[in-house]
C-alpha cells in the first residue's frame, strides 16, 4: 500500500497553544500502545476535507518514550491550501483519523559528541521529541530558538524550565538576534548542527556554518514544503492510460490519487524521494519544487516529484 503502514487513531485532545498554533494528541482506538519512534520523526495525517483528501506531514513533538500517544503542533496558514485550516477548524476530540507510521528524515546522528540546534517558529517541533530522547540517554545539546514574539514562542516556558542552561530564546519583536558566528566558533569537535525553521533561516545557518569551515556531513536540516498553489495543468498517466487535470490548489500526487491510481509516497513534502516518477514525454517546463532531485536530475528532465512539483506547457506524460 502506498505510504506504508497506517495507524487508525482517535483524537484525544486539542489544545490552543497560542494565537496561531494548536496541538493535537492522537491515541490508538483500542487503547494499545502506539509504536515507538525516534526523535525527529514525522507522521502523515490523512484528512477528508469535505470531499478533498489531504495528507500533510507533521513532526511528532511528544516524548518518544511515551507510548500512550503522539502529539503534533500545527500552525494555522490562512493563505495555504487548507490542511492546517481543516485541522484548526474541524478536528475535535473524539474524532477518528488515520495517520502513517512514524518516518524519520531528520534523525540525530547518535555518534555526535554534542547537538547544536537552531529552531525558528513552528520549526521547534522536531527538536521537542529529540530533546526528550536526548534527556533520557544523557545526550549533550544546546538549543537556540527564535520566534516572532514572546506570545508566539510555543513551548519556550517548558523548555527553559527543564533546561535553563541549554535553551536560549530570541524574539524578533525585541530585536534579538542569534549571534551565530560566536556560537559556531566554540563548538567541540564532533558536534553536529541541526536547523529547522523558515527557509531563510535554514539557508543563513547552513551558509554561515559552511563559511566557518563546518563539514557538510555535520550539517542537518529539515524543511517540509507545502505543495505550492499554481495554474491548472493536464498530465497523461502513461502506465494506466488516464489523462488527468491538476487543479490550482491540488498537487499532482493528489490528482493522481483522485483518479484512482495508487502512487508511492512517504513525506508528501518534497524531501524523502519516495514518489519519484519517470517522465516519458515533456513539451514544456517542469516546475521542480522538491529538495530531492539533484541539479543534474533536473537538467536531464527525466524525473518528477509529484508531491510538490508542477508543470507548465503543452504536454507531459509520466510513468504512473
Amino acid at each position: 500500500m502506498s505510504g506504508g503502514a497506517k495507524l487508525p487513531v482517535r483524537v484525544a485532545e486539542v489544545v490552543q497553544v497560542n494565537d496561531l498554533i494548536k496541538r493535537f494528541r492522537f491515541v490508538t482506538r483500542d487503547g494499545s500502545p502506539m509504536p515507538a519512534f525516534s526523535g525527529g520523526s514525522h507522521t502523515v495525517v490523512e484528512m477528508d476535507d469535505h470531499g478533498t483528501r489531504r495528507l500533510n506531514p507533521y513532526s511528532i513533538m511528544s516524548d518518544p518514550a511515551d507510548s500512550s500517544g503522539y502529539e503534533i503542533s500545527v500552525r494555522r496558514d490562512d493563505v495555504g491550501r487548507g490542511g492546517s485550516l481543516y485541522l484548526h477548524n474541524h478536528v475535535t476530540p473524539g474524532m477518528e483519523m488515520v495517520i502513517s507510521h512514524p518516518v524519520n528524515l531528520f534523525p540525530l546522528d547518535t555518534r555526535a559528541k554534542k547537538y547544536l540546534m537552531f529552531a525558528g517558529g513552528i520549526g521547534i517541533t522536531p527538536f521537542l521529541s529529540q530533546i526528550a530522547q536526548l534527556s533520557h540517554h544523557g545526550g549533550r545539546f544546546e538549543l537556540h530558538y527564535s520566534a516572532r514574539s514572546r506570545a508566539l514562542g510555543a513551548y519556550m516556558d517548558r523548555l527553559t524550565a527543564a533546561h535553563p542552561d541549554r535553551v536560549h530564546c530570541y524574539f524578533d519583536e525585541e530585536d534579538q538576534r542569534i549571534d551565530l558566528p560566536r556560537i559556531l566558533a566554540n563548538q567541540p569537535i564532533g558536534t553536529h548542527l541541526y536547523v529547522c525553521g523558515p527557509k531563510g533561516m535554514i539557508n543563513w545557518v547552513l551558509d554561515t556554518a559552511r563559511a566557518a569551515g563546518w563539514p557538510e556531513p555535520a550539517l542537518h536540516h529539515e524543511e517540509f514544503l507545502a505543495p505550492p498553489v499554481g495554474d491548472a495543468f493536464t498530465v497523461q498517466l502513461a502506465a494506466t492510460g488516464k489523462t488527468i487535470t491538476v487543479a490550482p490548489a491540488q498537487s499532482l500526487l493528489e490528482a493522481i490519487e483522485a483518479a484512482g491510481v495508487d502512487a508511492p509516497y512517504l513525506c508528501r513534502g518534497g524531501a524523502c524521494g519516495q514518489c519519484e516518477t519517470r517522465v516519458i514525454a515533456c513539451d514544456g517546463t517542469i516546475q521542480h519544487n522538491d529538495h530531492w532531485l539533484t541539479d543534474e536530475d533536473r537538467a536531464e528532465g527525466q524525473k518528477i516529484m509529484p508531491c510538490v512539483s508542477r508543470f507548465a506547457g503543452k504536454h507531459l506524460s509520466i510513468d504512473r
Binding site: 563539514p215 556531513p217 555535520a218
Partner: peptide, 8 residues
C-alpha cells in the same frame, strides 16, 4: 574517533 566526519 572524535566524531568528526571522515568524509570531510
Amino acid at each position: 574517533a572524535t566524531g568528526f566526519p571522515h568524509a570531510a
